[in-house]
Structures are given as structure tokens and as C-alpha cells.
């Protein structure tokens, strides 16, 4: 397979194998993080779907005018914004995190072959900003539904 060209045969002196195996595990940690984001996206889509269905029922059965209005707003918000974009944006975040993990693996490998190790900064800042963005967006959804 073409991918085989990415396998490098190294002389196993000292901790060479262990270093590269640790690098591989770090990539797997990145992969699990990104899979967690994707799973979160799926879960949020399902939750919003349930909320949507509940709201529809409530709008129909409620005799309180204000409650009707709130439920309409919440339903409207869910339908137009959150339901459409929040789940997929979690998946987009997963894609970015996976790309960072892949880049980090091969960069670390490049420097390990030269007896150096790159301390991560950009990758940490990236994952921090992405998490912050999604948390704020989810928080905004909660605020909007309840206001």
C-alpha cells in the first residue's frame, strides 16, 4: 500500500521504540478527543430533536399566552439555529482537532529523529479556543431557550 512509505525502519537504541510508541499514544489521545467532540455533536443533535418535539407538543397544548410565546421562541431558535448548526459544528471541531493531532504526530516524529522534541503550544491554544467557542455557543443556546 502507498501508506507503507510512511513507515520508517529505525535502529532501536535506548528508548527509540518507547519514544515513538508514546508519540503514537499521544495521537490516539488526540483522536479520542476528536471522537468525543463528534459524539457530543451527535448527542446534542438528538437532544435538540427531543426538545423540539416536546416544544411542539407544549405549544399545542399550553393555554398560557406567555409560555406559548417562550416555547415558540425556543422552538424557533432550536429549529433555525441550534438544531441546524450546533451538532455539525461539533463535528467540524472534531475534524480540526484530528488534523492538529495528525500534524503533531508527524512533527514530533520529525524532531524525535533529530533527538529533539517540540513542546506543544499552538495545538493546545487551538483546542482551547475550539472548546471555548463551543461551550459559549452551547451556553448561548441554554440562555436563549430559558429567557
Amino acid at each position: 500500500m502507498v501508506l507503507r512509505k510512511l513507515n520508517m525502519r529505525l535502529k532501536n537504541e535506548g528508548a527509540v521504540a518507547r519514544d515513538h510508541l508514546a508519540n503514537e499514544r499521544t495521537f490516539l489521545a488526540w483522536l479520542r478527543t476528536s471522537l468525543g467532540f463528534a459524539s457530543g455533536g451527535v448527542a446534542i443533535t438528538q437532544l435538540i430533536k427531543i426538545a423540539h418535539q416536546l416544544n411542539q407538543q407544549t405549544v399545542k397544548t399550553s393555554d398560557n399566552e406567555i409560555l406559548d410565546e417562550v416555547m415558540y421562541l425556543a422552538w424557533h431558535f432550536n429549529q433555525e439555529k441550534a438544531e441546524k448548526y450546533l451538532g455539525p459544528s461539533f463535528v467540524l471541531a472534531a475534524i480540526v482537532i484530528l488534523a492538529v493531532g495528525l500534524w503533531r504526530y508527524f512533527a514530533s516524529q520529525y524532531w524525535l529523529l533529530r533527538d529533539l522534541f517540540p513542546a506543544g503550544r499552538g495545538s493546545i491554544i487551538t483546542i482551547f479556543l475550539i472548546s471555548l467557542l463551543l461551550i459559549v455557543a452551547s451556553f448561548g443556546l441554554v440562555i436563549n431557550v430559558h429567557s
Binding site: K5, L6, N7, R9, K11, L102, F106
Partner: peptide, 16 residues
């Protein structure tokens, strides 16, 4: 044994 190590680049790229 333990003379060579082959990096897992192909597996990582495949998973990616």
C-alpha cells in the same frame, strides 16, 4: 530482536 523499530506512520495515516 529489539534491533529495529518500525514506526506506525501508515496506521496513523490510515486512522486519520
Amino acid at each position: 530482536g529489539r534491533e529495529y523499530y518500525v514506526t506506525g506512520g501508515s496506521t496513523i495515516m490510515f486512522l486519520g
